[in-house]
Structures are given as C-alpha cells and as structure tokens.
Amino acid sequence: MSRRAAVLAIGLVLLALVPPVAAAIGQPFYVDVFRRVMIFAIAAISLDLILGYGGMVSFGHAAYLGIGAYAVGIPAFYGIHNGWLQWTIAIVVSAAVALLIGAVSLRTSGVYFIMITLAFAQMLYYLGNSVEEYGGDDGMRLAARSALGVVDLRNGTTFYYVVLALLVLSLAVGHRLINSRFGMVVRGVRSNEPRMRAIGFSTFRYKLVAFMVAGAMCGLAGALLVNHTEYVTPEFMHWTRSGDIMFMVILGGMGTLGGPVLGAVVLRLLEDLILPAWTQHWQAILGPFLVLIVLFAKRGLVGLLPERRDG
C-alpha cells in the first residue's frame, strides 16, 4: 500500500470513530459536522474525476447537488418517501442533465467550457428560484428523510454510517474507473487529446461518459445533502457552491482520490467551524487564502505528503 493510500485509510478509520467519540465527550453536534464534511467529500471526488483526471474545468458542478436534492425533495412533497426510488431518480436525472450539458459544452474547450458550465448551472439556479410550487427562492422543507427500509436515516448515527459507506463506495468506484481502460483513455485525453484522437479514440464520447458519471455521483451527494439539512433551496446550486467544491479539490490535491476528501475536511471545518468562530467576515480571509493556495501550493495538501513516483 502506498503511503498516500495508507493515510487515506487512516483518515477513513478516524471518520468511522467520530460518532462514538462525539458521544463519549457529549458533543453529538460533531456527528452532524462530519456527516456534512463527508457529503461534500463525495461531491468533491466526483468533480475530481473530470477535473483532476479528465482535465475538464467544470465550474457548474453544484448544479448536480441541486438536482439530487430536488430529486428527493419533489417526490417527498408529493408524499413519496421511498429512498430507493428517490435516490435512483437523483442519480438518473443528474446523469441525464449531465448528458445534455456535456453534449453542448464538451463541443468547446478551454475558457468557453468554463463559462458554459457556469452558465448552465446558473440557469438551473434561476429555474429553481422561479418555480414557486417548490418554494421558489425560499426553498422548501423536507417533510421526512428518505425511507430506506430497515435503515433508519432519522437516527443521526445510522445516517452518518450510511454516508461513510457511500463515501467509501465512491472512492472504490473512482479507483476502479481511473485504473480501468476507460480511465486510462480519459487520462490520456487530459495529457494530449489530439494524440488520443489520432490513435483512434472517439474522445468526445469518453469525455461525455466521464462527465455523466461525475454528474451522477454528485447527484447522489445532493440526495444525501437534502436529507442532512432537511431543507432544499436553489442555493444548493449557487455558483459559489461550485467554486467551493472546486476549491476543495484543488486544496486537497487534484488528480488524486484522497485529495478531494482531505480538501473537503479542511475547507468545511474552516468555513463551518473555525473561521466563523473567529470573525463574521471570514470570507475576507478565505479569499486571499484561496489566492495564495493557487499561487504557491498548486499540488494541494496531498502534495505535501512525500511519495515515491508510481506513475
């Protein structure tokens, strides 16, 4: 096992220990905090699949967070609480929307791609704002968490371990994908797309499928997030959310699987706990911090861990 994989495994074990420790010190609040962290970690992993491995700078990834959330919220609004159904809808609809957005935006590249993905996410944000049935810009409360048979999400600890299990699953899926033939092609496209085309790959199709997989995975994160907050608003899709998720990937280290998880842990704790406790104007600190990370620590926190070159 490489050193980074070992660090990631230790991190996951630590995450698994959060509920008993929180119970022991009488601070169940931390179960909520880290559940939110892990949900964003899944979203960040999904973005890293296309951003870090595929070189597609999608600046509208929060759109799928919102789609996943509304895919749970809208059935619940009509009294359908079956979680299997809701989560399936979240994944399928996110993938379908990613297919549509990808089909248009992947025809372009570079800065066009950034602007177009951002614009489409913003389009969905405004759509959410203007559909009054589902709360418009106020959003709507989730009447009940998704019902998953014997697994009772109303129990905070149970829900925590469901999210942890899905995080591990996302990492496993990511690992399998990246090292598969498909993943090799996507990584090849990132390094040199004309060459990949020249040796006969239809790079557009590979990129589109990767874009869909990332969208579907982030849709699942959205379904988890709405269960966590028990509330859904268009703010889930706001473009600053997309920037947030992208920052997690860069902060942790893009093009690695552990990086987005680490980035999600650090950024969420900074934004949710540490900085707000210090000053209400914490964004004035976070902004320049982000600039400095980009300028001086491009490889992210994972880059600080020494590792033998393994390709």
Binding site: L51, V57, F59, G110, V111, I114, T240, G243, M246, F247, I250, H281, W282, Q283, A284, L286, G287, P288, F289, L290, V291, I293, V294, L295, K298
Partner: peptide, 28 residues
C-alpha cells in the same frame, strides 16, 4: 499579473478568491 502565464483553472480559482474578498470588504 502573476496569473497571466497560469492555466485557466488557476485564474478561475484565484479570481474567485478575489470575489470573496471584495464582497466581504464591501460588507465591512
């Protein structure tokens, strides 16, 4: 000035950081 030679991803993130900064400064 330091960003001209960087790739678009760096530019997007760094200027995103500037937005957070400016918005908060206006709030202050």
């Amino acid at each position: 000035r330091t960003l001209y030679e960087r790739d678009h991803l760096d530019q997007v993130l760094a200027t995103f950081g500037l937005i957070l900064f400016f918005n908060e400064m206006v709030a202050i």
